[in-house]
Write a protein that binds this DNA or RNA. Sequence first.
RNA 1: GCUCGCUUAGCUUAGUGGAAGAGCGCUUCCUUCACACGGAAGAGGUCAGAAGUUCGAAUCUUCUAGCGAGCACCA
Length: 882
Amino acid sequence: MTEIPKAYEPQQVEAKWYEFWIQEECFKADAASDKPPFSMVIPPPNVTGILHLGHVLNNTIQDILARRARMLGKEVLWIPGTDHAGIATQVVVEKKLKLEEGVSRHDLGREKFVERVWKWKEKHGGIIINQLKKLGCSCDWSRERFTLDSEYSRKVLETFVDLYHKGLIFRGKRMVNWCPVSLTALSDEEVIMKPQNGKLYYFQVEVAEEPGQFLTIATTRPETIPGDTAVAVNPKDSRFSALIGKHVIRPIPAELPREQKMIPIIGDEAVDFEFGTGVLKVTPAHDKADFDIGKRHKLAMLEVINADATMEELAGSDLKGLTREVARKKSWEILTSLGSAVKIEPYQNSVGYSERADVPIEPRLSEQWFLKYPSQKEALEVVTSGELSFYPDRWAKVYQHWMENIQDWCISRQLWWGHRIPVWYKNGEVKCQIDSPGEGWEQDKDVLDTWFSSWLWPIATMDETTFKKFYPTTVLVTAPEILFFWVARMIMAGYEYEGQKPFKDVYLTGIVRDKLGRKMSKSLGNSPDPLDMIARYGADAVRMGIMRAAPLGQDLLFDEQQVELGRNFCNKIWNACRFRQMQGGVVDAEITPELLTNDDIWMLSRLNLAIQELSKAFDEYNFAEAIQILYRFFWNEYCDWYVEAAKASLNSDNPKLKENTLAVIDFILSNTLRLFHPFLPFITEELWQGMGYSNDMTEDQGGKTIMNAPFPKPFDQDFLEFYNIKEEILTFVTAKYDLVVMGRNLRREGNVASNKKVRFVVKPLTQIDQHDLSVLKVLLHAEPLDVQPGYEPTKGTPSSRNSFAEIYLPMDELIDVEAERAKLVKLVEKYQTEIQRVEQRLNNPNFVEKAPPAVLEDNRKRLLEYQTMLSQTQNALNALDA
RNA sequence: GCUCGCUUAGCUUAGUGGAAGAGCGCUUCCUUCACACGGAAGAGGUCAGAAGUUCGAAUCUUCUAGCGAGCACCA
């Protein structure tokens, strides 16, 4: 650090050190190391993805954990990578092809299309990986993985084959969640229920056997009437039970002959008396509940809606080809013209939407592959027993609830980009194996759900030696949105294939929202670009900003101002080091205990406290708390108090004292940089090297990089004794600083500018040595500081007092006796109230009898303190009246 | 509908039985030789509401209201 700019300039610094770390292979995990392991796998972002604030939060947390673990002497493995994101990637490439070349994937054919997706992936995929590097992430890039890598793919397919042969994977024609835009089936987890302001349409149908008798039916989807194959009532419903076994005339399609419109009236317990009219139209091919009823009564399955959610031929000439929305209106028109329409009521319900395409899901009958989840029991027990912990722990309940109620997983997708299902067909024969059984065998057309590959992430990303050293991983950090999609499934896969959990702890981050509490979204435009912020404020500032804003277990309201504060903080550290450097002298000299000032001792104890508190915050994954501790320690305690107090030594004419103070400053700063390194990797490395704190360290203990410097540990007893850290000294210093605040307050009340040197008089109430007085002088900006044990002030001289001393600000003019009196009277009243409150408590026999001794003692002490303060203040008041 | 959270200073929040804390913002003062991306001092809270348990409740219990999330949904 030859040139010292006044403000920290992060841009070149960050690029320089990241390159250095990579060059020196600082992030690379050594599977042969005998250090204890610490491992994580990154939640693989979509290969199409670009960095957003959710990633920033998530990966900053992981990096903090990784960097701290290294400094604690662990062998750290953090595996990065991306997933192939089946639908998302396929859609991106399809759009691009359409736009640039005007071709569809069907024009190209499967093989060519997949080739093009790979090309796209090589060129544009993985942008996010470089963005993570900008953020400072210390992933082991030599172990980067992609879910479609050949090795990884092999494991995915092996898993399929294994589960198939275990009888857990089967093919079946079932009702699935169909996305009419992506034209694929989806799992239950990919369906989002959205409340709707819908309508309930009432129409009537004639009972065939009882001309003139009508049944009224309520439905939200009149366009499905052509698919109705029965009308159901509850057999216990006396209004309708007699009609069971008869028929009604289905009104649509209108053109059909009467005998083709006849559908049976059936009795089924599933029908609710209360709802609607108590009569239910049953459309087995287009509704999950109706499908079940249909199965029970062996009803015909009449498909009247196409894969793209337009109406099929069987829906009749009036509806054929219409979209379901248009068909709904059209059906009502038809019912109206037939005289069947009764009324429309507004109706609130929820409809499932495709997570990817954001359109209503069409329940659809189709042939799909399903998985009965393996190792459910173990996966549930490991959490209920507390062997695997969630942070915050309330997620454990959400997890349990889901685990206890899961349905089979629909794992096939009608896409081309992904792991093609390893099942082969020939003349009605079926074989499940990875490679083709030979001539004439045709492979299943579908690919697997992307999550069917990412659920193997902790297992399939590690080679054998890596696995041996680092599995199970230490902690998983991810977003709660993918608790079911990913976390739960990984746990099941972990048990099924490795016989143990894939991670010990799961930390679930909050959701990043804007400052108004709205989710970040492209359409709202409320999502700032992290890279832009990194460019403007520096990666450390962005990291600090987001971590500061993240309360434990709750969503995070992000405001760019947070990043600005992060930048300010970096600048503060920068300048604190700059100040040290301007003092010159030997860096990192030994501290001589005999020369320690009270302020030195106080500061050393504050460092110790910060280290202790930080350690506790880490154990609880409480990062916002950690930041707060560091902020208080460094800005408030070190900069605001200690550095200012130390100026008394630094500006003194005692070179030994000055030297020793510099040694203390170096000790504190070198510890501070190490404490901050996990949070602010770049600036701490720059200063670590620049200040010369790395010079005395061995190569692997911070000599090369702060990344390997030992993380500060709480002081042991020897240390506390050696440096004379005693309670009474700390109390003394606290009282001294307390008096300084009082003095500055007098200044403020007397309208004396803070930069103006002014005379203070101090009346000590305890032994105060010369150095402490000079500290007082500096902190008060006093000139002169009169120490007068027998001082008798001019009447009305503004004053304050505590157990340490009385302080006076003598005013040459404009003494406002009444103002001083009012101030003192207010204080007297305050003390009296407090005394009254404490006395009341102490006079209560119940309290004295039942309260714990410590509390009792505390109250008695408090009473004494207030009484002393009261009498001192009273004396001052009396002097005013004398 | 069920389950789980949350409600503390203008904002974001810490605080799981013993004197209401922090940061930001705000007000006033200060460009003093590390930092105006700064320094100093200060104002600001019936801890959502009600009832209960207790010597003592922001903290425990019950109820109410508002907000949020997860799950399930009756056409």
